[in-house]
Write a protein that binds this DNA or RNA. Structure first.
Ligand SMILES: [Zn+2]
Ligand SMILES: [Zn+2]
Ligand SMILES: [Zn+2]
Ligand SMILES: [Zn+2]
Lengths: 132, 132
DNA sequence: TAACAAACGTTACATTATAACACTATGATA
DNA sequence: TATCATAGTGTTATAATGTAACGTTTGTTA
C-alpha cells in the first residue's frame, strides 16, 4: 500500500515546508527554516528530500537545484516530470499535460535504449513578466 | 556571422578537451586536466563553459552537473536540448530527433507562457547495460 | 524477544559555483 | 592616434550544494 505510506518525523516537517512554499526551495534554505525544529545538519534535510522524491511527493528542479511539491499526482512516483520556468521571476510550475506525457512516455530512440524516467524543463517568460 | 565566431585561448583549450572526451566532463575534472596549460582557477573554467554554452558548442547535463559537446548542431544555440542518460553506466547521448524537437518547440501550455528554450533528459538503461 | 530495516544524529569533508577586484587585449570611433 | 567600449584574463577568497562514515534509535516482523 504505497499510498498509505506514513512519513517519518523529519520527512513530514520538510514536506510540510515545501508544500506551503509557493516557490521551489533550496536545500539550505529548508535547513535554515527547520533548525528551530531540531533539524541541524544538511544530511538530515537531504535524506528526507531523497525519500520524498522517491515517493513522488516532491520533485527536484534540476536546473535550479531546488525542490518543489508535486501538484499533479499524474507523474507516477516522479517518473515523468515537466516544468515551466520563468527566467525573469524564477516562477516554476509543474506541467500536467496528458498529451505531452503520453508522447514522452512512448518516445523511443533508434538505439533501443529503455527509458524509465524523464524530466523536461521549459524556460521562458511567464505571462506576468511578459506584460512588464 | 555566428559561425565564424572565433574563440579565445581558454575557450579553445576547454572546448577541445570536452570534444575529445567520450563522456560528459565535470568542471573540476576539466580544471585538473588544463592546469598544465596554465588554467589554474575554477573561474577560468566556468567562464569559458558559460561562453561555450551560449554559443551552442557545448551543453550542460543538468542532472549530472556535467558538460558535453554538442553533436547535433540542430539545437540552434542550445535552445532545444535532449539527452538520454544511462543510470547504470552514466553514458550520455544527445538525442537528435526531428519529430521530438518539433513537438517540443511547438508546445504551449494553457497559461500562455512563452517558451524560449527547453531541456529534456531521459533516464534509463542503455543497450549495453541491458544485456548485462 | 531477537533480528532486521529504516530513520536518525553528528562530525567532518567533498564538490560545485560565484563575488570582487585589478589588469590586458581587441577592435571600433571620432 | 587618442579614447572608448567590450570581452577576456588572472587571482584570492568564499559561498552554495551535496556526501562519507560512524554509531545510535526506532519501528516492524518472525
Ligand atoms: Zn509531479
Ligand atoms: Zn515571470
Ligand atoms: Zn546540441
Ligand atoms: Zn549503460
Amino acid at each position: 500500500m504505497a499510498q498509505t505510506q506514513t512519513l517519518s518525523k523529519n520527512q513530514k516537517i520538510i514536506l510540510d515546508i515545501i508544500e506551503k512554499a509557493n516557490e521551489p526551495l533550496k536545500a539550505y534554505s529548508i535547513l535554515f527554516s527547520v533548525q528551530k525544529k531540531g533539524i541541524k545538519a544538511p544530511l538530515q534535510v537531504y535524506r528526507a528530500l531523497e525519500k520524498l522524491i522517491k515517493l513522488g511527493k516532491i520533485h527536484k528542479v534540476e536546473s535550479r537545484n531546488a525542490f518543489i511539491a508535486c501538484k499533479s499526482s499524474n507523474c507516477e512516483i516522479s517518473k515523468a516530470t515537466a516544468f515551466s520556468i520563468c527566467e525573469t521571476c524564477e516562477k516554476v510550475t509543474e506541467i500536467s499535460d496528458q498529451k505531452l506525457s503520453k508522447y514522452l512516455k512512448n518516445f523511443h530512440d533508434k538505439t533501443g535504449m529503455i527509458y524509465k524516467k524523464y524530466n523536461l524543463e521549459f524556460y521562458g517568460l511567464c505571462t506576468t513578466c511578459k506584460r512588464n
